[in-house]
């Protein structure tokens, strides 16, 4: 069974803590090998902590490197409003992503200090929506849940992958989104609820769910064990573990 993880991260954090660290891409690959994850989407934290292009370029170099070749890894880029000309123009973005083995973008209006709305990001979001490019909306990465609700209301066709980092289960916040938006998927990284995967599969169908671990912040084993043992069909399990993300990348022309 192929396992792809939609929420992988690396990059030195400079926080002085011995926890939740994966400073280098080599460490990330070692962890993937140790726990049997075949690839997925990887974000370089430098795009939030150092510079957007510094991090975007860094991850592109890593996923295209020789050592990454035994994994099915795609990078994740941060995108900014086009008015400051810092990231590729909206119309150039899909080709640039394809060329650099980038499988998704993430929006981080809090960290990158911009207003997330149609005025600032409309052109970019139009392209992302039209091209079905996966857009990661993760409250761990500089976006509030109310911003996710607003951007989905304005761009309801987005191929969004939503994650809500918390230490409590959050079905009351996540389920309305999953019910309402056809192309929206839920990243399971923080879905540690007892019976959560089974409940979501029964309600929305397994096509809405994408496996994620939030490595290195959380233990990769946790969500691997939850999905491995979930009381769902093997077919559903395969889609959640990798099939759904693979299909998203294919539909976006990025695979």
């Amino acid at each position: 069974m192929k396992i792809l993880d939609c929420n992988l991260n690396f990059g030195a954090t400079n926080n002085g803590e011995p926890y939740q660290n994966c400073d280098t891409f080599a460490e990330l690959l070692e962890e993937l090998g140790r726990c049997g994850i075949g690839g997925g989407l990887v974000r370089c934290g430098y795009s939030s902590t150092v510079g957007v292009n510094y991090g975007n370029d860094f991850v592109a170099r890593c996923v295209k490197s020789d050592e990454a070749k035994k994994f099915d890894l795609y990078g994740v880029w941060a995108v900014l409003p086009p008015y400051t000309d810092e990231t590729p123009k909206p119309e150039d973005l899909p080709a640039a992503m394809k060329e650099n083995r980038i499988g998704a973008v993430y929006l981080s209006p809090r960290t990158h200090r911009y207003e997330l709305n149609a005025l600032t990001m409309g052109e970019t979001l139009d392209v992302l929506q039209q091209k079905k490019i996966p857009v990661l909306l993760n409250t761990a990465n500089g976006i509030w849940m109310d911003q996710i609700y607003r951007v989905m209301a304005e761009f309801p066709g987005l191929t969004a992958v939503v994650a809500d980092q918390d230490c409590w289960p959050n079905a009351r916040r996540l389920y309305p989104l999953a019910y309402h938006y056809e192309n929206l998927r839920l990243d399971l990284s923080y879905v540690m609820d007892a019976g959560g995967v089974e409940d979501m599969t029964a309600r929305f169908g397994e096509e809405k769910l994408v496996f994620g671990t939030a490595f290195p912040y959380r233990y990769t084993g946790s969500m691997l064990a939850v999905v491995r043992s979930a009381a769902i069909s093997d077919g559903a399990r395969e889609k959640i573990f990798g099939g759904n993300l693979e299909k998203m990348l294919e539909e976006a022309g990025l695979k």
Binding site: P169, Y219, G221, A225, V226, S229, A230
Partner: peptide, 19 residues
Amino acid sequence: GTDLPWFSTMHGVGMVLGA
């Protein structure tokens, strides 16, 4: 311990297995 029904038993099991 799990805090069941808050958290999946397997979420904790996976941590212990992978640590």
